[in-house]
Nucleic acid binder design. Structure first.
Ligand SMILES: [Mn+2]
Ligand SMILES: [Mn+2]
Ligand SMILES: [Zn+2]
Ligand SMILES: [Zn+2]
Lengths: 141, 141
DNA sequence: TAGTAATTGCAAACAGTTCGCAATTACTAT
DNA sequence: ATAGTAATTGCGAACTGTTTGCAATTACTA
């Protein structure tokens, strides 16, 4: 399912070190099915090594995001960031307003937006954030 | 340009009162060309009535959002909310990563997303948040 | 194995926003 | 116009999520 990336090699190649916090954060992200808040990640990491600080969780996540390994999205009504292993942004988020479920939706819609803007509006899109809130199929009446 | 809505009547009709904070926040939002943070709104409101508190700004904005009069978006890299007079969500945000400019982009793209999800994926979209970061035409090299 | 810079844990700071509560105010009904 | 009443305000303090400075620790390199 997930590409078995060698985190140590990947990090070292870019001048970073493989540390316990980083390894554990990465493991937790990989094992999670969905999106996790930093707090949730900290809890899970803490079960494996209780010494690891929340600040280090944030630092790991920030680094992973810079390296393109992880991705943060603001999904809830609270402004909290939710993290996951990176997926391309043409896979977007469907957030059910009733049950809170978040699903991914792939397809060429986002790509259409990108090329439309590029071709007709001279806007060179870097990241496209698309998230849709509504009612999922099991919550529609 | 802007519909001359009668704020007092509008509010009273829904059981709210027209107060000074609300009137001034509404004026500021209407007069602004772009998106303002609560802090920016507070500054501008404060020039007209320095007694008005930041908390009241937030309370006014929250109320306006609930009534569909105003709209909050998270546009920058900081998590700060930016406010403006409501516009339909099929007008989305183009954020230039270099100069910080935010423009609106209308069109049927968002509507396509909505009907695609509805027709083929049984997902009843309520709000669609689409924002694109990249380089605006004057910042592309 | 030792040397060195990167990284950590901790606590404190921070930004943006919300909340409790007594005082004030806008509306309603006389 | 006035008084009554509930909605709203200002104020400060609390809160949430995140970041930062710094001394102590640790991962890598040689
Ligand atoms: Mn996702
Ligand atoms: Mn806008
Ligand atoms: Zn649902
Ligand atoms: Zn620009």
């Amino acid at each position: 399912m997930t590409d078995p990336i060698d985190l140590g090699a990947f990090l070292r190649q870019r001048g970073h070190r493989l540390t316990n916090p980083r390894r554990l954060v990465w493991d937790v992200l990989g094992a999670a099915r969905g999106h996790l808040t930093a707090e949730q990640i900290a809890t899970r990491v803490g079960r494996r090594d209780s010494r690891i600080n929340l600040a280090s969780i944030y630092r790991s996540l920030t680094l992973f995001a810079e390296l393109g390994l992880a991705r943060e999205s603001i999904l809830g009504t609270d402004g909290a960031g939710r993290w996951e292993v990176a997926h391309p942004d043409d896979e977007f988020h469907l957030i059910c307003g009733r049950c809170g479920d978040v699903q991914h939706h792939g397809g060429d819609l986002v790509e259409q937006v990108r090329s439309h803007l590029g071709n007709y509006h001279a806007f060179k899109a870097a990241t496209i954030e698309l998230s849709v809130t509504g009612l999922c199929s099991s919550c529609v009446v």
